[in-house]
């Protein structure tokens, strides 16, 4: 390549030799190595290209297209401009996978069927506690179990009755277990709430068709449960103990 041709190309296209029409790149490199003038011109052109490249345009705000879609009578683009706005407002603070507003709203909305399933699960837990405890002689309906901080007070009230001390101790142990079970049940509800966001609602229903689905079903289920408790002699004994306990509390008040 001659120096005159080199000067023309570098003045026209800058340092990007791929844009030099039909130029032999090896010949260009050889000329730059050999000619000081060519080298100086090439370095100047490269510096200008680098400076130009530092003037960046960035990206257009995607809401521009949303506005246009609305103006031409179409739907806004089905992507989360909400996420884009958040990222623009707080760069670096918002992850890329921020869900769309409608997704967030759907997650926040109550899901009655899921909670009915959870309620039914709780009812099943009560059944298992009432009917299937180890010894079966002493059992307490979990719904009336006192909170743990009140147990000392309950022990005092029970001690005022004619009940033998061993029986009081055993009853208190049972009640402690009940509190543990209740805490476990609360933990289970928490896990269900977490699972609710992960498992599609339809899948939950399909996995357990035996679980009561409507409010009426749950009411009937619980009525049946308490009716059965009335015919169980062990439960009847337990109910009598609780009646005694409540009477003691009433007297104290």
């Amino acid at each position: 390549m001659k120096i005159t041709q080199f000067k023309k190309m570098v003045a026209l296209h800058g340092a990007d030799v791929t844009r030099w029409d039909g130029a032999d790149i090896d010949a260009v490199k050889a000329l730059i190595r050999e000619s000081e003038e060519a080298r100086a011109l090439y370095n100047e052109a490269q510096a200008l290209d680098d400076a130009l490249d530092r003037f960046k345009a960035g990206s257009v705000d995607l809401s521009v297209l949303d506005d246009v879609m609305v103006r031409i009578g179409g739907e806004p683009v089905p992507r989360s401009s909400f996420s884009e706005e958040l990222k623009a407002a707080r760069p670096g603070m918002i992850p890329d996978d921020v869900p769309a507003p409608e997704v967030i709203a759907a997650r926040a909305a109550p899901r009655p069927m899921i909670w009915m399933t959870a309620a039914a699960f709780m009812a099943a837990l009560v059944v298992s506690v009432v009917f299937f405890r180890g010894e079966g002689d002493i059992s307490v309906q979990q719904a009336v179990v006192a909170e743990a901080p009140q147990m000392q007070e309950q022990e005092t009230v029970l001690a005022q009755t004619d009940m033998p001390a061993e029986e009081v101790d055993r009853l208190m142990l049972e009640m402690g277990d009940m509190v543990d079970d209740e805490l476990a049940a609360h933990e289970m509800i928490g896990l269900l709430a977490m699972a609710e966001t992960e498992v599609p609602q339809q899948d939950v229903r399909q996995q357990d068709e035996s679980v009561p689905q409507s409010e009426e079903d749950i009411d009937a289920f619980l009525d049946q449960l308490f009716d059965d408790a009335g015919t169980d002699p062990a439960l009847q004994q337990e109910m009598d103990l609780w009646k005694l306990f409540l009477e003691g509390q009433t007297r104290e008040l």
């Binding site: 345009a57 990206s59 257009v60 297209l65 879609m69 031409i72 179409g74 739907e75 683009v77």
Partner: peptide, 18 residues
């Protein structure tokens, strides 16, 4: 066709902006 418009617009809008 608005859907075709959306696709072409997304393809070229950054070019327009640049």
């Amino acid at each position: 066709d608005r859907e075709a418009f959306r696709v072409l617009a997304e393809r070229y809008m950054n070019l327009f902006y640049s």
